[in-house]
Design a protein around this nucleic acid. Structure first.
Length: 418
DNA sequence: CATCCACTGGAAAGATAGGTAA
DNA sequence: TTACCTATCTTTCCAGTGGATG
């Protein structure tokens, strides 16, 4: 008998819940799609394409709409022989500078044998290479920059649309599609960039719970067999996504996680309880991911706050976190950071949603300061912080906590440290 | 109403670590 | 090897903030 066995399945096609799944129809985005299509029309007419700027919160269908329309465009363009259409798609997540974008674009355009490193070249030579590659391509080129709001300086957003006017490109017609999660990004652009990049703007509003239910139903019909979903499942997942952002991605992820959990259970139907477990599971993943991305000092600061929390000292101001943090830093054999920097780490933790901040102002006697509090359960954070525990040892308060809470199995393994 | 507390958060500059090119 | 690139994390400095207080 083998180790592996095919699951008794509730899924007809689980892939329909994945991020890269392309549905036949986009639900609830009719108006936006129409505007988008109009903006893309010049490509078909073999004219200089518009620069298009899409904005809206995460998971409201910006990228999906782009993929959907551009794949159709690519098809439809084939019937006209005089159009040479090329598409460059780049997700700018994690890219902070124009320089990085330029290098990625060059790599995107070149074949694998000829890639360049992402650091080291003078800025101007990277741009040189970029113009060269673009010009070689010829025809109409659409450059899609997904999540452009991550970029801090806008030099490339200035350079790209004007490359032709500046004589860097001779034959290629270039159009830029910028996709941004952050509406204020547009306002922060310098006026000259704004005028060229934002020729056509399309706003994607958040989905409401109704839209989300329709979307989930559409996906679920493909993904699951009939009648395996409890009636409450889809509304619950929709509510989860609608709660703070109208985010379809979040809802669909939850639906998939829920389905996976039900399948693990060998359950033949998916219930409300599976949704609840799925929600917790996603939350946990989010925390671990956040913590893993921090530096060691970030961990030390978090651990300091955690121990203070277990001692019921929270909410606590940064001044009072510092001695504890310094102690841990020294035990870990690192020089403690200067207070200013420690506060930066605290702000970062707050941004990840791991801790919460309250601003206080006691006026003339107390001045303005911020108070920090744990937002997550200590167990969850401890399990993601095990490397710190190795370095500084388990603090007294954590030991206390673990003794008083004997059910927690995965953390009891750590009590051996001194 | 002006003052002032004690922190916040922006900015500049340093240190270090990666890379190319010649 | 030297000369030059950028990225990332850090320190240093300091103007700004806003509500209680006199």
């Amino acid at each position: 008998m083998g180790i592996f066995e095919r699951d008794t399945d509730i899924y007809r096609d689980r892939d329909a819940l994945r991020e890269d799944y392309q549905p036949e129809e986009l639900v609830g985005r009719d108006e936006e799609l129409r505007a988008y299509q109009t903006a893309l029309q010049p490509v078909i007419n073999a004219e200089q394409p518009n620069n298009i700027f899409l904005y809206g919160k995460t998971g409201v269908g910006k990228t999906a709409a782009t993929r959907y329309l551009l794949s159709h465009l690519k098809e439809d363009v084939k019937q006209y022989e005089d159009i040479d259409f090329n598409l460059v798609f780049l997700n700018c997540d994690g890219l902070i500078s124009s320089y990085q974008i330029a290098t990625r674009l060059v790599n995107e355009l070149r074949d694998d044998s000829n890639q360049i490193s992402t650091t080291g070249y003078p800025r101007s030579s990277v741009y040189e290479m970029l113009w060269e590659e673009l010009d070689e391509l010829g025809g109409t080129v659409l450059v899609v920059l997904d999540e452009v709001d991550h970029v801090q300086d806008d030099s490339i957003l200035y350079q790209l649309p004007r490359a032709r006017a500046n004589g860097n490109l001779s034959s290629t017609k270039i159009g830029i599609i910028g996709i941004s999660n952050d509406f204020s990004f547009r306002d922060d652009l310098s006026p000259k960039v704004k005028s060229s990049l934002c020729e056509q703007e399309i706003h994607f509003p958040a989905y409401d719970a109704d839209d989300l239910q329709k979307i989930l139903t559409q996906r679920a019909t493909v993904a699951f067999y009939d009648d395996v979903l409890d009636d409450a499942v889809i509304p619950l997942c929709a509510a989860y996504g609608a709660k703070d952002a109208g985010d379809a991605r979040q809802s669909i992820d939850l639906l998939m996680k829920t389905g996976d959990i039900a399948r693990d259970d060998n359950s033949e139907i998916v219930t409300e309880e599976h949704v609840e477990r799925g929600r917790r599971n996603l939350e946990r993943g989010r925390i671990e991911e956040g913590i893993n991305g921090l530096t060691q000092h970030g961990h030390l600061v978090l651990y300091a706050l955690l121990t203070l929390d277990l001692e019921q000292e929270t909410p606590v101001r940064s001044r009072d976190i510092r001695p504890r943090y310094s102690l841990f830093a020294e035990r870990a054999g690192r020089d403690p950071l200067v207070p200013r920097r420690m506060r930066d780490h605290l702000s970062e933790l707050a941004m990840l949603g791991l801790i919460s901040v309250t601003e206080r102002n006691e006026g003339r006697r107390g001045g303005t300061y911020r108070e920090y509090d744990m937002d997550m359960s200590p167990e969850l954070i401890l399990s993601a912080l095990d490397d710190v525990l190795n370095d500084v040892g388990v603090h007294e308060s954590v030991k206390q906590h673990l003794i008083s809470d004997t059910e927690s199995e995965e953390t009891t393994a750590l009590t051996d440290f001194s």
